[in-house]
């Protein structure tokens, strides 16, 4: 033991190695008999999957709330018309690139079952948040407002929630898989879109429209997935997103910039439109777990019986 200690070169150490070594010796002796604090604290980890894993850390703190499994799930096209009066069109969602958008225009005939529905929020919508702009006000604007909860007043539909079929099995028609890169655009010191969903393996394309330098720092839990400088006038940067999970996007030069990218291993997800609508195709028939995530409202889950053909309508409501 001491042989190694003596060998440590201490030349450039600025801080208290001495006490550290003493403690270390004591610790070394103790650790033979007693479990360490780390072992005790770390004992409760369990394997989480999909969305649950994705939002486990570090923010927002999203407790899993079980949505009441009511009888909102109906099958058949009539039911769909009743529950979703407004047909979702590809144009509804200008900023995001929903994976299923290619199919929602109605031109493509879908073989398997279709899951459609809405995510609702009837609670009081918090006032827009004023964010302090501490840098580059000429480019970023003197003040900035963010609206974490965006609800369509007519329908209570909640925008920018991400719905995912957890078990994820099924066959995806090729037309439905978005091959386009998921955009992360820096514009007037904001990320566009604010929330986005994409399939692992696809590229994130980072673009800077501003005449100042930004850095785009994407993290998943406490690991850096990508932290690249995007200088003014620089070319877009494309990088594949490799792992599923909730990625928090920040710029460290402008601390008020933040966005989210949800990455999934499969294509069975969609992001809600301004009216809170979503549509997922190609899922295997049978009992499936649907999970919906929202930036500040957290997670809801629901079991849904997916028929072999036709449409099943699902409604989520954040209370």
């Amino acid at each position: 033991m001491w042989a190694y200690r003596k060998k440590i070169t201490m030349s450039r150490m600025k801080w208290i190695l001495g006490p550290a070594l003493l403690i270390g010796a004591a610790y070394g002796a103790l650790s033979d008999v007693a479990p360490s604090a780390a072992q005790q604290a770390g004992g409760t980890s369990r394997k989480a999957t999909g969305l649950e894993r994705a939002v486990a850390e570090p923010e927002p703190s999203a407790a899993i709330r079980q949505a009441p499994v009511t009888s909102t799930a109906k099958t058949g096209h009539d039911a769909m018309a009743e529950a979703v009066p407004q047909q979702k069109t590809a144009g509804v969602q200008p900023s995001a690139a929903p994976q299923n958008a290619g199919l929602s225009a109605g031109s493509v005939s879908v073989q398997g079952p279709v899951i459609v529905g809405r995510v609702l929020y009837k609670g009081s919508v918090p006032a827009p948040v004023q964010v302090e702009v501490n840098r580059d006000p000429d480019i970023c604007g003197a003040t900035m407002t963010t609206m974490p909860i965006s609800v369509d007043p007519a329908t209570h539909g909640l925008r920018n929630a991400i719905v995912h079929v957890e078990s994820g099995s099924g066959t995806m028609p090729v037309e439905g898989v978005a091959q386009t890169p998921a955009i992360v655009r820096n514009k007037q010191c904001r990320f566009f879109p604010h929330v986005g969903a994409m399939q692992a393996g696809n590229d994130a394309e980072i673009i800077n429209d501003d005449p100042v330098m930004h850095n785009t720092n994407m993290t998943f839990a406490n690991r850096t997935v990508l932290n690249v400088a995007v200088v003014a006038g620089g070319s877009p940067i494309k990088k594949p997103m490799k792992k599923a999970g909730l990625h928090v996007v920040k710029c460290n030069v402008h601390k008020f910039m933040q966005a989210y990218r949800m990455v999934f291993d499969d294509p069975f997800f969609d992001q809600t439109t301004e009216a809170g609508q979503f549509r997922i195709v190609g899922v295997a028939p049978g009992m499936q777990t649907l999970t919906v995530w929202h930036e500040t409202l957290g997670i809801l889950q629901k079991e849904v019986q997916v028929p072999a053909r036709g449409t099943v309508v699902v409604e989520f409501e954040y209370k």
């Binding site: 850095n215 785009t216 720092n217 406490n222 690991r223 850096t224 932290n227 690249v228 400088a229 995007v230 200088v231 620089g234 070319s235 940067i237 460290n252």
Partner: peptide
Amino acid sequence: GTPMPSFADS
């Protein structure tokens, strides 16, 4: 793990 970004692409 820090704000220091990669400039390789730039």
